[in-house]
């Protein structure tokens, strides 16, 4: 599981302040999913963090990924064509991407929209783990743009 992250983005904030992302992290790492939170902001760009800043943030938020990966050159981000934070990429044990896109179907910043939303990550993981095909393998991710080094807006 790859989760693109930017701690200043209100769409990411929606899932962290509500505890939604942390719940997902705890549940799925508990079911042997390797979960990486990836920060692809370039130095000087919004969302860029050092290792200690990210560790502090994760402790404060009680985030529970397997690890946070700092990607300031944007290599990983560009490899996966990550466009927004949050953006979720689910990869199965054979190395195939089985889901890539939005975390759920409510592209807003309102915390109240989490409860009723269809969570694509849960669906993809549950369907794949049950040996079934993933019904929705791709959606348009929603959020703030990933701040690569050429980001201007």
């Amino acid at each position: 599981m790859l989760e693109w992250h930017n701690n200043g983005c209100p769409y990411v904030g929606k899932h962290y302040k509500s505890g939604n992302m942390q719940r997902l992290q705890k549940e799925w790492t508990g079911r042997n999913v390797v979960w990486f939170t990836i920060i692809s902001s370039a130095p000087g760009k919004q969302g860029y963090v050092t290792a200690s800043e990210e560790n502090q943030y994760m402790a404060k938020m009680q985030a529970a990924p397997t690890a946070a990966l700092l990607d300031p050159t944007g290599q990983i981000g560009h490899l996966y064509d990550a466009k927004t934070s949050p953006q979720m990429v689910v990869i199965n044990p054979q190395g195939i991407v089985i889901y890539d896109g939005a975390i759920d179907d409510k592209p807003t910043t309102d915390l109240s929209d989490i409860a009723g939303a269809t969570n694509y990550v849960n669906l993809a993981l549950e369907q794949a783990m049950a040996g079934k095909p993933v019904e929705t393998p791709a959606t348009r991710p929603y959020g703030c743009s990933v701040k690569y080094s050429d980001s201007t807006h």
């Binding site: 390797v34 990966l69 490899l79 990429v89 990869i91 044990p93 190395g95 195939i96 991407v97």
Partner: peptide
């Protein structure tokens, strides 16, 4: 090229 490579994923430790 990058679009094609999106589905050429490897395992996490090979990123």
């Amino acid at each position: 090229e990058a679009l094609d490579s999106i589905f050429n994923a490897r395992r996490g430790d090979d990123l």
